[in-house]
Computed example of a mutant assay.
Amino acid sequence: MPCPLPRIAALGSALLLGLAALIAASPAHAQAERCPKLVAENPFLQRLAPRALPAAYVGPRQVGLTYIGHSTFLIETAGGVTVATDYNDYVRPSVVPRVATMNRAHSTHYSLNPDPGIEYVLKGWREDREPARYDLDIGDLWVGNLPTNIRDWQGETIRNGNSIFVFRAADLCIAHLGHLHHTLTQEDIGALGRLDVVLAPVDGSYTLDIDGVIEVLKALEVPVIIPMHYFNEGTLNHFLTRFAGRDYAIERRESPELVLSRATLPKKPTVIVLPPGG
């Protein structure tokens, strides 16, 4: 895929109707202004009986996040819901997730033969190029998406070929930017709501260029950024060097596993680098 290429034109307002409608419909949005839908305040979920934890380190009001590699993370909720992002046939978690999200840029971001044990296989695109739309409550997890465009190998635009998937659990909102190829409009930013964690591609070539991804991340103003989709230390360090001095601390962790909670979000915005290999 050529790189870098001129940014694709911003999404039209029609693509934003799904998430914008969710924001308008959310009774808690005016108060919290976080994420399109506040699952943690759903009265139905508050009546659910406690469930066995998916992993020993994920407790109530926490979310587990493990970097598997490339663009794949395993997300685990306290209620036992597991999600694999950009699920593909090359980089997979050791467990069969209940939910798999996919994007269509190329084969390291989707699978033609997902494990039959996956209950929800969520493609970030539709074959007719209409926007994919999700608004799903799965146990103590909510999943939504914002459709975006991608470019093909010739640099032509494929409308609605990608999705930014948004996950909410334990009063935390996590966005996976997927194979993002263009900057976001103010309407996009408003539709996404106030996010807590962003999983961002930082290769600077196959996805959005470094200037573009920095523009997106600055606009989102999230407490935690976790880089993904980098091909070597040089690629990662190029992003970190460019991002240095932008009021973000940079932390490198030795483990690919991370436990997140609203109570322990960093007071200073932080880029957390997780090694692949979960």
Rank of each mutant, 00 (worst) to 15 (best):
L146N: 05
D196E: 04
R151M: 06
D140T: 11
G155C: 05
F165D: 00
A200C: 10
T183I: 15
Y110T: 01
T183F: 08
D209R: 13
G161N: 08
V121C: 00
Y120Q: 09
G155W: 07
T148H: 12
A191V: 05
P114L: 08
G161I: 02
Y206H: 12
S163H: 04
D209F: 09
V121T: 07
N113C: 05
L122Q: 00
I189G: 02
G190F: 13
I214L: 15
R159C: 00
G190V: 03
Y134H: 10
N149I: 08
R104F: 10
P114K: 06
C173N: 04
D140A: 00
N149R: 06
N160M: 01
Y134V: 14
D152A: 12
G193P: 00
G190T: 14
T185F: 07
R151K: 13
R104L: 14
E156C: 01
I150C: 02
L112K: 14
A200T: 12
P116C: 00
I210C: 14
S107N: 12
P201T: 10
N113Y: 09
G204Y: 07
I138C: 02
I158Q: 12
H181G: 06
T207S: 15
A169W: 03
R129P: 00
G212H: 05
R168K: 08
A105W: 12
P147I: 02
D188Q: 09
P147R: 07
G178F: 12
A200K: 09
S111I: 04
A105K: 14
E119S: 13
H176W: 13
L199T: 13
G190C: 08
A170P: 05
I210D: 15
R104Q: 14
R194S: 11
P116S: 07
V213W: 03
D203H: 11
I174N: 11
G144W: 07
H106Y: 14
H181R: 14
T183N: 15
